[in-house]
Design a protein around this nucleic acid. Structure first.
Lengths: 180, 180
DNA sequence: TCAACTTGGTACCGATCGGTTCCGTTTGCC
DNA sequence: GGCAAACGGAACCGATCGGTACCAAGTTGA
């Protein structure tokens, strides 16, 4: 596979959009970073927005698989997600959450790209509910994701894994307060 | 007030930047929304970024006063901040947190405007520590702000005050788990 | 070897970006 | 009433935005 312009574009999109934001990165930057010609870009993607959507779908797939893996490996202990989060926050290129960033950057609620970001979070909640076997009327998955998102946003400011530790401590108190 | 171009610009900035994002709103939009002439804009502000910074400083002042007021009125009960948050989330024009949104949109850690957004959150933590009389080595203020930010981000997706209720329940479990 | 296809490079498009300059009018103050 | 300051409107600047068209070089399988 010598060329594969499409994959290189997606990779550059993941790096640049995540690092600097969607609106901050122009098509020109993507082309230079990926080494792809301008024409090839529009042969593979209908628009810049199409590339953003593709990147977000990949983010959704990867993060949901990560969540499943980290909780399953801990025999269903939801606290494990915060240990795994600490690792993610320690990445040198950490820049928050692609889904949250997109919801902030694309304000229009009807924007189909924003909708992908919203649906990712909803899917994460469903994933948690499934993994933990939570009752349908139990808010635990929403509360855990609230802690998860809170830690992500805090880390965006602190640039350290400390928020994951804090969120875990809060989650532990929450779980301990619930009837066995 | 027939003139007062500066105040009208700040007001328009609060509305538009908050509703659609900093990068999404051009100077032209600000001029039309405020009725201010282009030249007057640059008589009062050195740049668009200067207006953003001014708007953020106002947001910081307002939100810190709000936090003080809502907790003081509840005789120092930190849970009151989540009741107040529910009201804020119910605003029809709610679009998250100006500070978080700025940190997402302006990625460069050395950007002075981004720094204002970061310092706002740090000031909120100090405010909480002061209001609650928390010990310096106690993470409670950071944990409460993590819940606060988590609720703000969740509401950005749900467009309902429910996240504030959820964050309050988690905060109650956290406070109950602490030694009296 | 030769055709079918994909590639990167470049010139170009209209639109919009943030910012500067000039001009004529309106405003508040004495 | 007069004067200086503050004002709104518009023309204009270079740069960049997302997107299109065309071209030459390189890759592929038969």
């Amino acid at each position: 596979m010598p060329t594969h312009a499409r994959e290189r574009l997606v990779k550059a999109a993941e790096d640049l959009f995540f690092a600097e934001g969607i609106r901050a990165v122009g098509v020109e930057r993507l082309l230079r970073a990926s080494g792809v010609g301008r024409a090839s870009f529009y042969r593979h993607f209908a628009s810049k927005d199409d590339l953003v959507a593709t990147m977000l779908r990949g983010y959704d797939t990867q993060l949901r698989a990560w969540l499943r893996e980290v909780i399953t490996r801990a025999d269903g202990d939801p606290l494990a997600m915060f240990d795994g989060l600490a690792t993610r926050l320690s990445a040198t290129n950490f820049r928050g959450c692609a889904s949250i960033n997109t919801m902030v950057e694309l304000a229009d609620p009807d924007d189909p790209t924003r909708r992908i970001a919203v649906e990712h979070k909803e899917a994460m909640i469903r994933e948690l509910r499934d993994l933990l076997g939570t009752a349908p009327d139990d808010d635990l998955p929403e509360q855990l994701l609230l802690l998860f998102d809170g830690a992500l946003v805090s880390a965006l400011r602190e640039h350290s894994p400390a928020p994951a530790r804090r969120a875990k401590a809060v989650a532990a108190a929450l779980l301990a307060s619930r009837p066995a």
